Amino acid sequence: MNAISVHRETDHGGTERRKGEAVIAAAAAIARDNSRRGLKRRALARYYHGQSSEDRYRDRSADRCPSCRTEIKLTESLAAPLIAETRRKFDQQLAAKEVDFGRREALLKQASEEIAKARETVDEQFAAKLKAERTSIAQAEAKRARLAIADEFGERDRQLADLQQTLSVNAEKLAAGSFEAARYGCG
């Protein structure tokens, strides 16, 4: 016989029960007797091996009172208020978490809006600084160009003055040379 079998059979008292329940009861009895030695976990682990968690908790139809150790059968009428209370607590926790997540989402949205505004402000400041720098660079380049042109005009004026002086010296020499040539009769 398999311990996980779900076939129904009747015990000697005529009560119909599943074979798995009998094995659980036997494992629980062994575990009660040997709880100090850690055999409870091993006995239940042997039974639960291969079962889903739903099957493990579905088979649990009785519980022990922690103070007097009497076994209390869990029926639908006893379990319904416990399930309702647990469901209500979980719903409250879920609602609280949803409110918390909503608050966090609002904070994140506000922070992202602030970041976008700050980024926009930084972009505007950068554009203003860039415009001011461009203006100052343009003014500096215009000043350099004026100075370069002024230097170039000054150099031309000096060259022109030198050429005029050379021309007047040459004109004087020519005039003196033609005067001398006329005087000595050359020509």
Rank of each mutant, 00 (worst) to 15 (best):
T70H: 11
D100N: 08
R58K: 10
Q125N: 13
A95R: 09
R42A: 13
S52E: 09
A80H: 01
A118L: 12
A127E: 15
Q110S: 04
L74P: 01
E120K: 10
F126P: 01
V122H: 11
E114N: 03
A145Q: 11
L78S: 05
R60H: 02
D100C: 00
A127V: 15
K143I: 07
Q110T: 11
Q93I: 10
E98S: 03
A106L: 11
F90Y: 15
T135N: 08
K131H: 07
K117C: 06
K89V: 15
D55S: 12
A132E: 15
Y57H: 14
K97D: 10
Y47L: 15
R60G: 03
A62V: 12
L44Q: 01
V99Q: 06
A142W: 10
R134S: 06
F126Q: 10
L94R: 15
T121Q: 15
E120Y: 14
D59W: 14
Q110H: 13
A106H: 04
L107E: 12
R87I: 04
S61Q: 07
D59R: 04
S52P: 04
K129Q: 06
I72N: 00
L82T: 04
I137A: 08
C65A: 01
K117I: 09
A138C: 03
F90D: 08
E71F: 01
R103F: 06
E141P: 02
F126N: 08
Y47M: 14
C68Y: 01
K97N: 12
A142G: 00
R88W: 07
L82C: 02
D91L: 13
Y57V: 15
P66G: 00
V122D: 04
L147E: 14
A145C: 08
I83K: 00
Y47D: 07
A79W: 06
F126Y: 14
L107D: 15
K109V: 12
P66A: 01
V99N: 02
D59N: 05
K117E: 12
I115P: 03
D123S: 13
R104C: 06
A45P: 03
I137Q: 11
L107I: 07
A118I: 11
Y57S: 12
Q51K: 12
G50Q: 06
K109A: 15
A79V: 05
P81C: 00
Q92H: 10
E124D: 06
I137R: 09
Q125K: 08
R58P: 02
R144K: 10
R146Q: 09
V99I: 09
R46T: 13
E76I: 04
S52A: 06
A116T: 08
R146K: 09
K117N: 01
L107W: 11
R103E: 10
R119A: 12
D123K: 13
R58M: 06
K97Q: 11
K129A: 12
R146E: 06
E71H: 01
R60Y: 01
A79T: 05
L82D: 00
A45W: 07
K73Y: 06
A79M: 10
R46Y: 15
A138Q: 04
L130T: 15
A127Q: 14
S77N: 05
Q110M: 11
R56N: 05
R134W: 09
R58A: 13
E98T: 09
T86P: 02
L147H: 08
K109M: 06
E85S: 11
E141S: 07
Q139S: 01
K97L: 14
R104N: 03
I115V: 13
R119E: 14
